[in-house]
Design a protein around this nucleic acid. Structure first.
Length: 638
RNA sequence: GCCCUUGUAGCUCAGCUGGUAGAGCAAUUGAUUUGUAAUCAAUAGGUCCGCGGUUCGAAUCCGUGCGGGGGCACCA
């Protein structure tokens, strides 16, 4: 005789066990139409689930996250049904929901093509129209394994084998088609609607392990309404428009070419942007007490052997052989070089903490499939620093690094930052005692920041635990940028030491830290975050002076020179094109301010300014323009 | 690295089932002298990614290498 409590506190009582369907019919007809699944005492269940004891029940529709998620899950099932109807012999594996959609991995010899996706979508619509009823059965483990093996579904059989003993093995049926699944599911296939789309085919390793065979994954998206689907596809299109590879080309910032995959050819404007960022960081680091150094790009193999890189990182390192057959490695990290600078001359405890920064260009032989524009390259510049300190200083130094990083992100318009803390990986150097100590100190610093953080087990660097700084951009994407790593191994390996108060020698602790991480990656992120419309102070081309006709070329040149002298990145456009053409041209290349010069301006020693994305005209005295904009020509915090 | 896909002018792209390439923009030259998002005309521009094969004939078909894109794995 279950008593059912609804979210609004209302109670319904029944004489015998009751299903969600029966409950919802009692609540309202309109809700009955919308109902997809239900939550019973916090557990998601099918509407056909029979409730036997007193429970709190919430009926879920497509407006609830869990409801929408179930729609996606059902769409994945229907995808698998459709594929097996169209391509008999295809094995199903897993088909979970993901952000905004779902995927399903299949095992089949022949590849799926883009045109197959269309066919599959049509078949899926048919299945929705058939409105097959969903029902659930619980099977014995052995029966399930034998059954799926007999069907030729070896992957499913393997999955069932791995389900922990004692857990129910539930099989969901949509008509005749059935799949092992935890559920819950919608009452029938008609309920998912037709607001879905298959988006891409891709390879994916069975169980996510590159040692296993590769399956074929079909990705799709599914929504509660046609409008939601359209909005989502629009969002994808918008994101594509901000792609830094497209904008980089349009804005003439950089390019890539076959001779050096994953390495950037910076053009004048891109390099100007790059230098502006570097100069900005130099200033910030000076204020924070860093000393900038620079170390060689190519170092003898023996140093990398001593540091441990040769062994742990060798497959990612470029090496070079000299004519006399010596082997040098191109640095993949700056740390060994920096330790050698520390090692030069005697250091005292009074020198600590010693903060040495370096804009070091490193090379890493990344797997070809990992490369992605500026965001994943093989040659990049780190805004690196190494802080030599005592164990007692780790937490305090970590905090000051964190503050510096947050300040810098804020200057560039990123205020939404989360931390990821990673501890010891399987492949590592150093004793467990040393790891214990460094993990503890770093975690303490993480907690001190009071920022949100997550813990990633086993994802630390091979030489120490780390914090990663993840920032969220204008369209909600997360990017890992800054990093802070404790290193209790390398200083010892390379024989670093300082003289203690009592005259004894001690090995310092080293903190590795990068602010943006890679300048290249950060520039990619910046471009996408701002859709190319960068903040004025880092804009590689801030102003373009445009004469109304060639009669005013001389005046325009004079204006341009004054702007350059005043520290702006400026150009004058003397091409034989009309004003409209030039405004369009420079607007498309995202120049923030255009200065138009004609008779009126010459007469009053002024300029008429037009800002990007505005057609307002504003006449202003040149001197005044310069004063106002000079104040804007630096980072907010400087 | 693995799976799928792709590579034509500086850029964006067209070129059906094999018959030695075409547009728009950009560039150059000339005309035009322009007041807030494309002035007009002419000219020039290609080892159709490289290599090999099939064929009387290959941008087109096949093989292979390299690069790009989407994923997977990787992100030390």
């Amino acid at each position: 005789m279950p008593n059912i409590t609804l979210p609004d506190g209302k109670k319904l009582s029944f004489d015998e066990k009751v299903t969600g369907k029966q409950i919802v019919e009692k609540i309202s007809k309109s809700l009955a139409k919308e109902a997809l699944i239900m939550s019973v005492d916090g557990n998601l269940k099918d509407l056909s689930f029979e409730i036997e004891k007193d429970s709190k029940v919430k009926i879920l529709t497509s407006k609830d996250d869990d409801g929408l998620d179930t729609i996606r899950h059902d769409t994945a099932h229907i995808l698998a049904m459709a594929v097996q109807e169209l391509f008999p012999g295809t094995q199903v594996t897993i088909g979970p929901t993901i952000e905004n959609g779902f995927y399903y991995d299949f095992a089949r010899k022949e590849p799926f093509t883009e045109s197959d996706l269309k066919k599959i979508e049509t078949k899926m619509s048919e299945i929705v129209d058939r409105n097959e009823t969903t029902y659930r059965e619980v099977w014995e483990r052995d029966k399930a394994i034998t059954h799926f093996k007999k069907m030729g579904e070896n992957y499913k059989a393997e999955i069932i084998q791995d389900i922990p003993k004692g857990e129910e093995i539930s099989i969901y049926f949509h008509g005749k088609w059935h799949d092992l699944c935890r559920g819950p599911h919608l009452p029938s296939t008609g309920r998912i609607g037709k607001h879905f789309k298959l988006t891409k085919v891709a390879g994916a390793y069975w169980r996510g392990d590159s040692k296993n065979e590769m399956l074929q994954r079909i990705y799709g998206t599914s929504w509660a309404s046609k409008k939601d689907l359209e909005d989502y596809l629009k969002r994808l299109e918008e994101a594509e428009k901000r792609d830094h590879r497209k904008l980089g080309k349009e804005m003439n910032l950089f390019h890539f070419r076959e001779e050096s995959p994953g390495a950037v050819f910076w053009h004048e404007k891109g390099w100007n942007l790059f230098q502006k960022l570097v100069n900005y960081m130099r200033k910030k680091q000076q204020v924070a007490g860093y000393k900038e150094i620079n170390t060689p790009e190519i170092l003898d193999r023996s140093l990398w052997e001593k540091s441990g890189h040769w062994e742990k990182f060798g497959t990612h390192m470029y090496t070079s052989q000299t004519p006399d057959e010596k082997i040098f490695a191109v640095k993949p990290m700056n740390c060994p070089g920096c330790v050698q600078v520390f090692n030069q001359g005697l250091k005292s405890y009074r020198d600590l903490p010693l903060k040495m920064s370096e804009f070091g260009k490193v090379h890493r032989y990344e797997p070809s499939g990992a490369l992605h524009g500026l965001l994943r390259v093989r040659a990049f510049t780190q805004d690196d620093a190494h802080i030599f300190c005592t164990e007692d200083q780790i937490t305090e130094q970590s905090l000051s690094i964190t503050n510096l990083i947050l300040e810098i992100y804020k200057d560039l318009g990123f205020e939404n930052v989360i931390l990821k803390y990673s501890d010891r990986p399987d492949l590592r150097v150093g004793s467990d005692a040393v790891w214990d100590k460094s993990e503890k100190a770093l975690l303490e610093a993480v907690k001190e920041t009071k920022l949100d953080y997550s813990i990633n087990k086993g994802e630390g660097a091979f030489y120490g635990p780390k914090i990663e700084f993840v920032l969220r951009d204008a369209i909600g994407r997360d990017w890992q940028c800054g990093t802070l790593q404790v290193d209790l191994n390398l200083p010892e390996r390379l024989g670093a030491s300082y003289v203690e108060k009592d005259g004894s020698k001690k090995v310092p602790v080293m903190l590795h830290r990068a602010l943006f991480g890679s300048l290249e990656r950060f520039i990619g992120i910046l471009i996408e975050n701002y859709s190319g419309k960068l903040p004025f102070w880092i804009c590689p081309l801030q102003t373009v002076v445009i004469p109304v006709s060639d009669e005013f070329d001389e005046y325009s040149k004079k204006v341009n020179k004054q702007l350059i002298d005043a520290g702006f990145s400026s150009e004058v456009d003397l091409k034989n094109h009309n004003l409209n053409y030039k405004i369009r041209d420079h607007s498309l290349s995202k120049v923030p301010i255009l200065l138009i010069c004609g008779k009126k301006e010459v007469d009053s020693n002024s300029v008429t300014i037009r800002r990007l994305d505005s057609n307002k005209q504003e006449n202003i005295e040149l001197k005044k323009f310069i004063t106002i904009h000079q104040a804007l020509n630096k980072a907010p915090s400087l």
